[in-house]
Amino acid sequence: MEGVSYQRFPKIKIREVKDDYMKFELRETDASMANALRRVMIAEVPTIAIDLVEIEVNSSVLNDEFIAHRLGLIPLTSERAMSMRFSRDCDACDGDGQCEFCSVEFHLRAKCLTDQTLDVTSKDLYSSDHTVVPVDFSDSAGYDVPEQRGIIIVKLRRGQELRLRAIARKGIGKDHAKWSPAATVTFMYEPEIHINEDLMETLTSEEKRSWVESSPTKVFEFNHETQQVAVVDAEAYTYDEEVIKKAEAMGKPGLVEIHAKEDSFIFTVETTGAIKASQLVLNAIEVLKQKLDSVRLSEDTVEADDQFGELGAHLRGG
């Protein structure tokens, strides 16, 4: 039975790409593949996040562990993460996570000397590696007040001070959500909507309008000039079946037929800014490949089974 392959050749069509957002269609594969990709994007694509904090001075109103937690949740640019080492299997530093292969050091020093409240933000974090810095949101969003940028860590009053050293490490979302590069990753089945035109013609204009309005999302449209009902946005359908129930209530079952295409998916990917959305998808494919590669049977298992097979044949009188 060698040479037989059950491989599939999925198709991809990208609809929209931005730095931290993308939408694409995935076709000719099944839900298990779509869901595996979604799960890997959320929990297994590595990023870099602050993991160890040494506080020198903290006279702010927030306690040390509270600040350490807030620092951990700040997204850091993580293009490097795929090629970095996990500090637990780094040979260069015995896994204590303080070398260039597996960690990045940050420093923060802030003291309030005026009567005005001082905002300590992610902009005050100084990185030892210019490729790993807190994510900058100022250019992507429309609102950029020059002062109010970065993520606020703590606010200081006169005389209060914060001084600390932090180590950022590579990790995955499965370990702690701070390492997840995904803000949201969702997929939906592509709906296929067929209106029974003959049955539709038996409705009055008023009935058509009320049927169109029974959908909680704008899937159908009633054209006042032609008095026709048409599908305007099939993907707005949320599988709520309201229009089907409405048709039944009107005594017109089968007015519309809606199927979920079981081999077509529409993905929406949004990232925290740690990596680009397109890179997240590519990294997810790569990580899934590595996972599958790691579950291959080892040579000794195969050999052990061969011997067992011969022994078994002996016992069976072979």
Binding site: V4, S5, F9, P10, K11, I12, M33, I285, K289
Partner: peptide, 24 residues
């Protein structure tokens, strides 16, 4: 069967990666 399934999935992901890069 196990090895075959892994090989096929691996090839599918290779294909997916190329398709995605081409689209990008």
């Amino acid at each position: 069967a196990y090895n075959q399934a892994l090989n096929d999935l691996d090839k599918e992901l290779d294909h997916l990666k190329n398709a995605f890069e081409a689209e990008m």
